[in-house]
């Protein structure tokens, strides 16, 4: 039984990272009906930028660990958000009226471009974060070993998600984002600046993705230029699993995917872990084609 709970906690940390990235997918999908394949690479860029800032500016040494990390996170978020906005302006905005799949190809192109740009700038080798920034204390509760950092990762992602949820639900901009995701034209008629809303989404999504990248870098300590591909794909599954376009759905999807993977690996086979995740996804989509929390939206005719 303790094995089960240990694997559950393992899965929750993995899942919270997925959820954080999935939010970017789901928000962009909500307002633009576009699968932003380059989102995983924004996550990678966040991880690499964090590394550069950390080693070049030595932020944590100058400001102390806590304030240093918050400054670092803020800087990474801002920089990745700038790249996200540029990405939208260059690769997606000209294609708003084009067929849906053209934007998908453009997104794939952007993904290839960003991934290889990272490789050319930072090299193909695995890059390693400086050690000993985060506390390495491990909690031992009832035979469960939970490193404190994992708890911190989980708590941080949860906090970010709750803030985002409140932002979407309670603020005026949030309402506007929801309106745009339902109907572009009607929102325009209501006086919403659709372009501005899309820009805001391309600030929030990449910023969250970038912060996820930073967390991965800080905790796991190594980053490589292709990691965005697998994290991105997983997060995308998570978004669909929860019901794409739905923000609590992305959180739920991410966490459940993490748990499915952990338990699948624990009780079936580690080598088949990803296949199990995809299999569950397919099964859920067959029985509930819009994902766990997805609402049935009438297809536009």
């Amino acid at each position: 039984m303790e094995l089960f709970f240990q694997q559950l906690t393992n899965g929750l940390t993995i899942g919270s990272i997925y959820a954080l990235i999935a939010l970017g997918y789901t928000m962009v999908y909500g307002v633009m009906k576009l699968i932003n394949f380059a989102h995983g690479d924004l996550f990678t860029i966040g991880a690499y930028l964090g590394l550069t800032l950390l080693t070049a500016l030595e932020i944590t040494k100058q400001f102390g660990t806590f304030i240093g990390l918050i400054t670092l996170a803020a800087m990474v978020c801002i920089l990745v958000a700038v790249i996200g906005v540029l990405l939208e302006k260059i690769a997606y905005q000209p294609l708003r009226k084009a067929p849906r799949l053209s934007a998908v190809v453009s997104a794939l192109g952007a993904s290839i471009f960003l991934q290889n740009a990272v490789m050319l700038i930072y090299g193909a080798r695995v890059r390693v974060y400086p050690q000993n920034i985060l506390p390495s204390y491990t909690l031992n509760i009832l035979e469960l070993h939970i490193p404190i950092v994992r708890v911190l990762i989980f708590a941080t992602s949860l906090l970010l998600m709750i803030v985002l949820y409140l932002f979407i639900q309670k603020t005026k901009t949030g309402v506007a984002i929801r309106a745009v995701s339902i109907d572009h034209i009607a929102s325009k008629l209501m006086g919403i600046n659709v372009n501005k809303i899309i820009m805001i989404v391309f600030i929030i999504g990449p910023a969250l993705g970038g912060s996820a990248g930073l967390m991965v870098g800080l905790y796991y300590g190594q980053v490589n230029f292709i990691m965005g591909w697998s994290y991105g794909l997983k997060a995308f599954i998570a978004a669909i699993l929860g019901g794409i376009g739905n923000i609590p759905g992305a959180m739920l999807g991410g966490l459940s995917l993490g748990i499915i993977e952990a338990l699948g690996a624990a009780y079936f086979s580690i080598a088949w872990k990803d296949a199990i995740a995809f299999f569950v996804l397919i099964i859920i989509l067959i029985f509930k084609p819009t994902g766990i929390l997805g609402e049935r939206v009438a297809e536009k005719i």
């Binding site: 690769a91 053209s102 190809v105 192109g109 952007a110 471009f113 991934q115 050319l120």
Partner: peptide, 20 residues
Amino acid sequence: SARMLIFGMAMIAMMIFKSE
């Protein structure tokens, strides 16, 4: 190594100018 970078850019450009 720069080959795929160009490839990615070309994909975006192609879709922008010839979206169908």
